[in-house]
Computed example of a mutant assay.
Amino acid sequence: MIKTVASLLRSVLLFFTVVLISTPLLARDKTDVVILKNGDRVTGEIKSLDRGKMSLSTDHMGTIQIEWAEVAQVTSQWIFEVETETGLRIFGALAPADEPETIQILGEDSRNTMHQTSVVKMTQLEAGFLARLEGYVDLGFSFARANRAKEWTLDTEVKTRNEIRQIRVNLNSLFSDRNDVDSNTRNVLILDWTRFFSNRWLGTALTNFTQNQELDLDLRSTFGGTVGRHLLQSNRSKFTLAGGAVYTREKFIIDDPADPEDIRNSIEGVAALQYELFNFGEPEADIVVNLAIFPSLSNWGRVRMNFDTRIRYEIFKDFFWSVSAFDQYDSSPPEGAEKNDFGVNTGVGWKW
């Protein structure tokens, strides 16, 4: 298992290297104009608007983040998907309107005017796949001399979105080692594909692979889908509920020489929520909370739960300090196995 994880980590690092080398080559002309309320004028390439911040790539300052509330006017000849708080999505170029703090979306046969405070997301549609990539890498390490305890953590995510869909890959890995106990590993790999619909509805096809020595879990493979809706979506927060069903195959390693493996196949329901809170003052900070409950439909009475939360605090531009907590619970594990595993980690990271 350790070799598999090491190979996966090398693949992730190679992927990041390709992304960093390739992305600048795919950038378009930097002709977009952003005028701030203080009168400053910035020319560059508008990458996106999300969580109350506009990402703008410039020739001399690199990629900068501008708080959306401080923008007076935006102009771009390129096509964007513009999404409002109500879930309305409009496609077109960007131009200032006659009224202050309003924006025009210029489509082929339409002209829509809206107040800037109602706009919560912009996605550049004419950029290539690699140019739309965004993500983060978070690394943690701790050491205690008394028992020679060492712990490494890795949390990384890459995602890309176009006008109707998003692809996301997330890897969370932990390895701990002490002189007085056996080493412990926990690895979670998530791949999901999301299709966005009108009125803030979305559908997600998801795949999850989990390994956890603390729970005697050699591998849990999950395949399925959910339907959800952003109940709240603004430039400061987002709250999403989703429900669906998944197929799960689990392989436990148990301390029984006669039958060392416990393999389970089951159908489970899914009830999930996500809450995100953003603060773009100085310094930038955000909080993300995820909760997913899996009641078994083929083994009545069994319930699994995955919970995780992360607080991220910017140290300086694009680098942050984070604290995260997790809890994995199983109401009916194999005999002798733990019901839940929980922990708190801290680390430093970089986002792009």
Rank of each mutant, 00 (worst) to 15 (best):
N212F: 07
N212W: 06
N212E: 12
N212L: 06
Q213P: 06
Q213C: 04
L215H: 00
L215C: 01
D216T: 11
L217W: 01
L219C: 08
T222R: 03
G224H: 02
G225A: 11
T226Q: 04
G228M: 04
H230E: 12
H230S: 08
L231H: 07
Q233W: 10
N235K: 05
R236L: 10
R236K: 10
S237C: 04
F239A: 08
T240V: 13
L241P: 04
A242Q: 10
G243H: 01
A245I: 15
A245D: 03
V246T: 12
Y247D: 08
Y247R: 09
Y247V: 14
K251H: 06
I253R: 06
D255W: 03
D259K: 12
D259R: 15
D262Y: 12
I263Q: 03
R264Q: 13
R264Y: 05
S266P: 09
S266K: 14
S266C: 08
I267G: 08
E268P: 02
E268D: 11
G269N: 11
V270A: 03
V270E: 02
V270D: 03
A272L: 01
L273H: 03
L277H: 09
N279C: 05
P283S: 08
P283C: 05
A285H: 07
D286L: 07
V288P: 00
N290S: 14
L291M: 02
A292E: 03
I293D: 00
S296A: 01
L297Q: 14
S298N: 09
G301S: 02
G301Y: 01
R304E: 14
D308N: 09
T309H: 00
R310C: 02
R310K: 10
Y313S: 14
E314V: 10
K317H: 08
D318M: 09
S322C: 07
S322L: 07
S324D: 13
F326I: 15
